[in-house]
Amino acid sequence: MNGAIHVENAVKTFKGDIKAVRGVSFDIAEGEFFAFLGPNGAGKSTTVQLLTTLLKPTSGKLEVAGYDVSKDPEKVRLSIGVALQETGIDPDLKGRELLEFQARLFGFTKKEAKKRADELLELVGLTEDADRLSGKYSGGMRRRLDLAMTLVHQPKILFLDEPTTGLDPANRKAIWREIKRLNKEEGTTIFLTTQYLEEADQLADRISIINKGQIVATGTPAELKRTLGLDAVVLQFDEEEDAVKAQQAVASPDYQTERVKNDITILTENGTSILADVIRKLDEQNLHPAQLNVKPPSLDDVFIQVTNEQKEGDSIE
């Protein structure tokens, strides 16, 4: 088996010519933590549903755990755990009952199912609420129960579609810790989707940014920042007049400068290398910035840049 997930030119067009996924390709290695980062309607959930046998692709080749999702959906389902964006919980069952039910369907005996349910309740911190109807749980509790149900059969590949949306910071951190542990200690391959750059940055080994059904950038968090993001050198002046002069003074064909009132921002590939040059030029004009900062790019900058570029590209078409 080469890799956990292999996707080649996946396309999904819904009724009414809605092109949700427009030819995406990617590979995820065994044990890798991969994130799909994208805004609303980018096609993240659709991709998850294609990979987890819930939707049939319009065209393309999708393999999970070495099996073709169209030809061997049963085998795929045995290898994966899936927490969809919407939780899948029967409100008329209690937390413990749901976990035991799930375990029985994955071939556990009654006794094994009981034991597994106890372990998972402990893991997600729902032991005390195990015998209450899940319909009465809070949103966060329901998310945690949903995650526990996903983990029942110890799947070696996990799909998590926005697992922390709607959680408070403490619960979000707890879920991060747990999925990190599954990845690092148990070698679980993880495919996570998120709208939060911070989440992808914190967790993933590799990120693909998806927008309007297409992957627009892929790399490690560091690579994405390096190749796409530019450092920002920010100069602040007390007087707007000085800022105007300074902008002329530091102008160079090597980088872009922008002025907003008293602040000048210089975007460049490597902020620290131009710093000496900028200070010398300012000195020559006898200009002294009140503050001077060099900011490394955040994934936010990368994200905004990439999705903007795509917008521009679209309007030219």
């Binding site: 046998t53 819930l54 799930q102």
Partner: peptide
């Protein structure tokens, strides 16, 4: 919940 059922073997 039905999606969850469909995701079981």
């Amino acid at each position: 919940f039905f999606s969850r059922l469909l995701l079981t073997p």
